[in-house]
């Protein structure tokens, strides 16, 4: 018997296929197109195939992210908070604080010793959009996402930048760029600003060790570094799975 979890996000669609012993058989991560239903259908098919299974082998599918409305074939849905919490506990059982930074949404979740969600906090209006802000900045700087993270580590100076609003921050980055400020320093300033905003969300809950960073931005080495600085403590990322996969894992666990 196998189950599936699907997480349709604004940027990526993630599918996890899991057996009844909680082993992950396969997963896929695909770009979410404008037609969500089509994207989720295709990603799902692909994941099932990758697991060497057939559709009818999947006994139950739970959706998260946009949920059932974007993945109508799912049996039920679960909120991102619950999915991220369960997934995080699965990939790192010592995690008590989970910080997720996605394209449009950021959230912080506090887990108890059994992996249940104890408290959570979501980004306020003016602090949303961190992930897609980074995407836009990568475009402006004309670097790859990897280079963008690496650059931040090379900075010799921290430029204070207020990123209360990512839209307004963009204009500031453009100004810095046009003032011939080195890319490394700009990258550091952006990472610091985002870490600042994300930490502010996280501080609304009690930040207990271990801190696990998930979501797309957890791939960014510059961001991990900035979060460590900002929180003044060690920050972990999932070791065996991509950090953006975690909520889909949580969704699959919810199907068991």
């Amino acid at each position: 018997m196998a189950v599936a979890g699907i997480d349709v996000g604004t940027k990526l669609t993630k599918v996890v296929i899991m057996d009844e012993d909680k082993n992950i058989l396969a997963y896929v991560i695909e770009r979410t197109g404008t037609d969500h239903k089509k994207s989720s259908e295709e990603a799902f098919e692909k994941a099932v195939e990758k697991a060497g299974l057939k559709r009818e082998d999947i006994k139950k599918t739970i959706a998260t992210g946009f949920g059932k409305i974007s993945a109508p074939f799912a049996d039920d849905e679960v909120t991102q908070v619950i999915a991220a919490g369960r997934g995080a506990y699965y990939v790192k059982p010592t995690a008590r604080t989970v910080i997720e930074v996605g394209a449009e949404e950021s959230r912080a979740i506090q887990l108890d010793d059994n992996g249940n969600v104890k408290d959570f906090s979501l980004a306020d209006k003016c602090a949303a959009g961190a992930g897609s802000f980074v995407d836009a900045m990568i475009r402006y700087l004309e670097v790859t996402p990897d280079e963008f993270g690496q650059l931040a580590l090379q900075a010799t100076r921290a430029i204070p930048m207020n990123a209360q609003c990512v839209v307004f921050a963009e204009s500031e980055v453009v100004s810095l760029l046009h003032s011939n400020v080195p890319k490394a320093e700009i990258s550091r300033a952006i990472h610091d600003a985002i870490a600042d905003r994300v930490a502010a969300i996280a501080r609304r809950i009690e930040i207990k060790d271990d801190v696990l960073l998930i979501g797309g931005l957890a791939n960014d080495i510059g961001f991990i570094d900035a979060m460590k600085r900002e929180l003044g403590k060690d920050v972990h990322v999932p070791e065996n799975y991509p950090p953006e996969l975690v909520p889909a894992i949580g969704a699959a666990l919810s199907a068991l």
Partner: peptide, 10 residues
Amino acid sequence: SHEPESITRP
């Protein structure tokens, strides 16, 4: 101090 901070928002 005009430095960005993240500790007051709670």
